[in-house]
Design a protein around this nucleic acid. Sequence first.
DNA 1: TGGCCATATTCCTTGACAGGCATATGCCTG
DNA 2: CAGGCATATGCCTGTCAAGGAATATGGCCA
Lengths: 104, 104
Amino acid sequence: MVVSVDAFAVLAEPTRRRILERLCRTESSVGDLVDALGMSQPAVSKHLKVLREAGFVSYRTAAQQRIYRINVRPLQAVDDWLTPYRRLWTEHLDALERHLDSQE
Amino acid sequence: MVVSVDAFAVLAEPTRRRILERLCRTESSVGDLVDALGMSQPAVSKHLKVLREAGFVSYRTAAQQRIYRINVRPLQAVDDWLTPYRRLWTEHLDALERHLDSQE
DNA sequence: TGGCCATATTCCTTGACAGGCATATGCCTG
DNA sequence: CAGGCATATGCCTGTCAAGGAATATGGCCA
């Protein structure tokens, strides 16, 4: 799993996010995704390759099919990236709560 | 504030993330950012424009300077986007905890 | 093994975007 | 109001990624 690929660049592609949204709910073969996305099979395979190399998905083989599933690691990385920013709104919220408390 | 611009596409650019990381800690003028990033002033201004139009930053005017500050809304949107995925690891964690509990 | 099915890869074209340089705009001060 | 400082915009070029069509790979079954 190549980790050097930038998670945000991978997520910048709407189609790839749609793939993740689907795989979040259920595993899917490539054909399933092609049907769900209404896109050509090569296009889907190429997006899956990008997702794979960034660690977002992996697959198991079932006969001639490849069943793709989602991986959490890169998504956790995004979650971690948000950490320093979250205080921006939680602190604002705290300040607001204090303000409201002082009003009653 | 144009909200149609895709937050992930904006964050896909490493330089823009660096700008946000800095603005998370402190407001900065364009000149401050140019110094901090070691990049040409036009390049920085262009990134700021993208960030502005996506709602990530706004500015106030101080004499000839524009003091940029971070906005939380688009970051909250990313945080929200993660919501359905977070259960993937929290549930795994819960399952692990249950397993460990059953072992003792 | 030959042919078929599911998926991957290659080639090609097109469009978007980043950065540098030059230049325009806007605002302040003497 | 002239000159200068801070920032924005336009133009140009190189890079890169997405999608389509054609084709290659690899596993399954008769």
